[in-house]
Design a protein around this nucleic acid. Structure first.
Length: 188
DNA sequence: CCCTGATTCGC
DNA sequence: GCGAATCAGG
């Protein structure tokens, strides 16, 4: 694959939209994220100018260069200052406080409370294909969503791959964290 | 280990 | 110009 005008355009578009290099690479196809990043730099838009830059990433860029060092590049470390601020609210349910592996936020038991039907349905599906791992099998990267009753043998953890950073898999994250806009406001 | 972008340098 | 390999960091 080569960098045709179209592909470059899509690259520019996605990059300015804040898409990650790997996402762009996936979209384009036939290239790796390295290729994308390389192109981005060659195009001179590594600064992610354009619209608003939702990338709070700090990059002092301390590249330790062994020998040669022309170092002409003069990049101004621009800081966006404001991040998107993912407005989420953890669902609070279950009065019971189950035993949970130390460290992580307490997982609410599914209780079909204010959870969207689709997310719930999704969870049902996921729980069918869940790995059913035990407490001891939990790792940093396994979904820690508990299923069943801790007081019985009928208890295990989801165990699927976690969403990065989060303690749960995609499906469980979607029921554990909800956008505020999704919450019911029978207030009014 | 998953991911992010940044940089170098042989091609 | 290209991008794999590598680096630095989350």
């Amino acid at each position: 694959m080569s960098w045709t005008d179209e592909r470059v355009e899509l690259l520019k578009k996605m990059w300015s939209e804040g898409q990650s290099a790997s996402q762009i690479a996936k979209e384009l196809g036939g290239v790796t994220r390295n290729a994308v990043i390389g192109k981005v730099h060659r195009l001179g838009l590594s600064n992610r100018a354009g619209a608003s830059a939702p990338m709070p990433e700090k990059k002092p860029a301390k590249a330790a260069m062994p020998q040669s060092s022309p170092a002409p590049a003069a990049k101004a470390p621009v800081k966006p200052a404001a991040k998107p601020a993912e407005k989420v609210v953890e669902v609070t349910v279950t009065p019971r406080k189950p035993i949970v592996p130390a460290g992580q936020p307490l997982p609410p038991q599914p209780s079909a409370n204010e959870i969207s039907p689709e997310a719930l349905a999704n969870v049902r599906e996921v729980e069918k294909s869940a790995k059913r791992i035990s407490l001891m099998e939990l790792t940093e990267r396994t979904c820690k969503w508990p299923i069943g009753d801790p007081a019985t043998d009928d208890f295990w953890f989801c165990g699927l791959a976690v969403q990065q950073g989060k303690p749960y898999c995609d499906a469980h994250v979607s029921v554990a964290f909800q956008p505020m806009s999704n919450r019911r406001d029978r207030r009014r």
